[in-house]
């Protein structure tokens, strides 16, 4: 609706105002979590073994990688970009990390170096994505599609196209750790990434600018800022989280693999979108992303436990992704009418 045609804000009666406020809160901020809760409850009552501590732990472990990738992806999507390269950048990072850890150094030195190596490799890939797409004004879809191939090739070259095994025992042990019997170490890493991302997006000037750039980068530029700097930063963060995801991968599977992460970028994007973000930028939240990642994994596990065949699972999950966006569109319309 245009500014001139929209009816003036009406002094609505307070009763309906409160109701509207509540509806808004439920629909906008808690909607994804309600959906997650609902899906979880349905499976808890229908799928055998779903509501067991063992299964929940398994879900938490399986969520970790996608959650980390999706956290970084949230930054990029908020600026209005997309990063298709995170899966293969992660693969490249697992190779780099595994190579460092199997290089024969003391593990007390090689493990921190490997962690740094993963993070740095990812961040550099992300920076290149951002720099190239902003400097030459190439859509990020294209640049990151290219990076997907480049990183994948680089991973094969570095690893001689083979899986790297034999990681230090301390590292492997940490990956298997379940803190207090309820918190897998790798899920804790994922949670930490989400928390940091949430803090940055919500409380910092930088986070504010990420949203603003996605909402209207030309207006941001004409307000005296350099939108490209924020876009590059978002891509760098996304690359960095791909590096962290690689560490999580190494912790969980204990191998560096050039063919790791195929298709992971799409799962990450799906989590962000289910979490309520708009591909046009400017709208979304990292907490929503966490919920989106949970929904995807809960669905996958739940359907499996229900005995739905592996061939049918993607069909259902695909439908859910589309449904989530349709629901979101209607929710927006409904919210606009409430105002």
């Amino acid at each position: 609706m245009s500014d001139t045609s929209s009816p003036p804000p009406a002094p609505a009666p307070t009763g309906s105002d409160d109701k509207a406020k509540l509806a808004r809160l439920l629909l906008r901020d808690a909607g994804v979590f309600l959906a997650l809760l609902l899906i979880t409850l349905v499976f808890a009552f229908t799928a055998p073994y779903f509501a067991t501590s063992g299964n929940i732990l398994k879900i938490l472990v399986q969520i970790a990688i996608n959650t980390v990738l999706a956290a970084g992806m949230t930054f990029v999507i908020l600026t209005g970009g997309i990063d298709l390269s995170v899966g293969s950048v992660m693969a490249l990072c697992t190779v780099v990390g595994a190579l460092i850890m199997t290089s024969g150094m003391e593990s007390s030195l090689s493990i921190p170096l490997a962690v740094l190596g993963c993070a740095a490799t990812g961040a550099v890939c992300g920076f290149v994505n951002g720099k190239v797409s902003t400097y030459w004004n190439v859509p990020s879809f294209i640049v990151t599609l290219g990076m997907l191939n480049i990183a994948s090739g680089a991973a094969r070259v570095l690893s001689n196209n083979s899986t790297i095994t034999g990681l230090p025992q301390e590292f492997v042990d940490f990956g298997n750790l379940i803190l207090g019997g309820i918190m897998p170490s790798i899920f804790l890493v994922a949670l930490l990434v989400i928390l940091i991302g949430w803090f940055i997006l919500r409380f910092t000037v930088f986070g504010r600018m990420i949203f603003a750039v996605g909402a209207n980068d030309e207006a941001v530029r004409l307000s005296g800022h350099n939108p490209d700097a924020y876009k590059i930063a978002a891509f760098t963060i996304c690359g960095l989280t791909a590096g962290i995801a690689a560490i999580v991968y190494l912790l969980r599977l204990n191998i560096g693999s050039p063919i790791a992460g195929i298709g992971y970028e799409l799962n990450a994007i799906a989590a962000v979108i289910i979490g309520g973000a708009s591909l046009n930028g400017g709208k979304g939240s990292i907490i929503g992303t966490l919920a989106g990642a949970c929904i995807l994994q809960v669905l996958a596990t739940g359907l499996q436990l229900l005995g739905v065949g592996d061939n049918y699972k993607p069909i259902i999950i695909g439908a859910v992704i589309i449904l989530a966006v349709i629901v979101d569109t209607y929710r927006e319309k409904f919210l606009r009418r409430l105002r």
Binding site: A212, A215, G282
Partner: peptide, 21 residues
């Protein structure tokens, strides 16, 4: 609309974006 404002963002964000420091 296309160059001056972040239309979907609230009033306060649109005002303070000129000087977040």
């Amino acid at each position: 609309k296309s160059q001056g404002l972040l239309l979907d963002m609230p009033v306060d964000l649109n005002v303070t974006i000129s000087d977040l420091r």
